[in-house]
Design a protein around this nucleic acid. Structure first.
Lengths: 176, 176
DNA sequence: CGATGCATGTAAGCTGTTACATGATTGC
DNA sequence: GCAATCATGTAACAGCTTACATGCATCG
């Protein structure tokens, strides 16, 4: 919404267009799909109406000559869009938003005591394995970006978090 | 769903009832509300139908004498429910689930370059402040649980993650 | 020229939220 | 006795997903 504040996915989508200067809806979908986080499936049913909404709200614009033979419409972030993006970024510092990190492994760890000793051990060990594989892919993503680019710095956060999760699970393994 | 697999919220709700042995829907809501993660608002419109669904599916049961004068129905996890809970826990090791961590600060950090030098500095510094306040509340939660309880160990994960996020943001501050 | 992939979009469904309604209990 | 809170529920809505439909382009 232009009047209200941007949703998470709206902010991210707007940011992706901004980063690419000019791109199609499909490119936004692809980038979301390829991102290491699987939080969003980048479904067509979400992306296309969302970008339309942003365009109607004046945060995105597509010039006439932006439609090529295949019917692809190239989008650009407007001045208002940039402003909205900045506002959205600062909104993230809201306590409610900061605390809304979500870790499915941790959600499950809370209920480990329904597992037998052996199952619990297996759960923790397998978690470490899964996390280490995940860590590898996030590190690979990190290597792609050039150092000191915002992309590198942002991905660094994913690596730090994944490392912390591994360290945490190893601590649990010790105490068992 | 009893036949299929549990959703995230279903797993968590079932786990909360299991942990308490026997509790009302309201107690589940309250625990979700008071949890340090604000990922779920624990809205009545979600919890009550969800618990009904689990009961119809045979994962939860409420005995007749469980209804007290105030109409509170006390729920218990059935044998099938315990089995479903264990399955759900192990399902979390699925790569798609492991990778679905979601950090709103990191989402925003990807697009920091739309900010001016000063704005960016402010964003990072304010983020550190917000994260440190969040870290304080997660540490407080940690102190409540007795050491070596699963609750303590699970909350430890939240602390590790929050520490990693602070460390990450301070790293960004250095490189600016 | 036919298969595969690019690209856009829509319809139906699920899940969760907000906001409201209702009544019973507790505390002052 | 009245306010606040406990406790359960419902209706309307918002957002995202799956699954489908469509057409163009590219490559063998």
């Amino acid at each position: 919404m232009p009047a209200g504040s941007l949703s998470e996915l709206e902010g991210v989508a707007l940011g992706i267009v901004q980063k690419r200067k000019r791109c199609t809806a499909y490119a936004v979908r692809r980038e979301l799909k390829q991102s290491p986080s699987t939080h969003w499936r980048a479904s067509a049913g979400a992306i296309y109406p969302l970008l339309e909404r942003l365009e109607r709200g004046g945060l995105l614009a597509s010039t006439k000559d932006s439609v090529d033979g295949r019917g692809r419409r190239h989008l650009q972030v407007t001045v208002d869009g940039k402003k909205a993006l900045r506002t959205w970024i600062f909104e993230g510092l809201d306590p409610g938003v900061v605390a809304s990190v979500f870790d499915p492994i941790r959600s499950r760890a809370f209920f480990m005591d329904v597992l037998s000793r052996r199952q619990r051990q297996k759960f923790v060990e397998d978690s470490i394995g899964a996390l280490e594989r995940y860590l590898e892919t996030t590190r690979a993503h990190l290597a792609e970006g050039e150092r000191d680019s915002v992309e590198y710095l942002a991905n660094l956060g994913a690596v730090y978090e994944a490392e912390a999760r591994v360290k945490w699970m190893k601590k649990i393994l010790e105490s068992a």
